[in-house]
Amino acid sequence: MKFGVIKFPGSNCDQDAYYTVKDVLGQPVEYLWHGDSDLKAVDCVIVPGGFSYGDYLRCGAIARFSPAMIATHEFAAKGGLVLGICNGFQVLCESHLLPGALVRNDGQKFVCKQIHLRTENTDTPFTGALSPGQIIQVPIAHGEGKYVCDEAVLAELDAANRILFRYCDADGTRTETSNPNGSTDDIAGIASANFNVLGLMPHPERAADPALGSADGRAIFESLLKFWH
């Protein structure tokens, strides 16, 4: 399964994603330059974390109109697999590949720490290697990670099981303190209506190798391989 990782000016998790695909999963991977519309025939596009275009105007607002993202939009519309992590999630929301938006954390601070996620739907290309309700530990590192959407969108996401991950504590309970940024309904990651696009604020690619403190995030990548083969 061939992966592509987009590099925007200001991306800083592109190498983490590249490393995870190449060295942890042992799969072919290419960088995709933001200024090119050629997606190099990849099977999955990863929109990485960072501060694309300096996060000017709004996080993800400028990246949306880059040639690589316009090509990714077409790729996703044809059913292509797209994984947006952190800034990548913000880019996917700005691109309208996912509904809603990410705004400033309730606490006003950039939060960088390990958190826990509860797997809410395992019947997707991104979560098939996880078990229902499985708790995974992965890091977050963001200042604008509070997911917001209107009530109609929230009801639709919930009814269609498109909320794939919610913040929780180590035993899976959702509490006020387990939500690190004030996200609506403890949402950490959502999928598109066809489940071929996932956006999430936490960083599974930074938790895919035991040397990094947790390998729990690897299951998201293993799910993609399981789905593909």
Binding site: L57, A61, P99
Partner: peptide, 8 residues
């Protein structure tokens, strides 16, 4: 298109 995000 760009300057404002009408979702928020």
């Amino acid at each position: 298109k760009l300057l404002a995000n009408l979702v928020i």
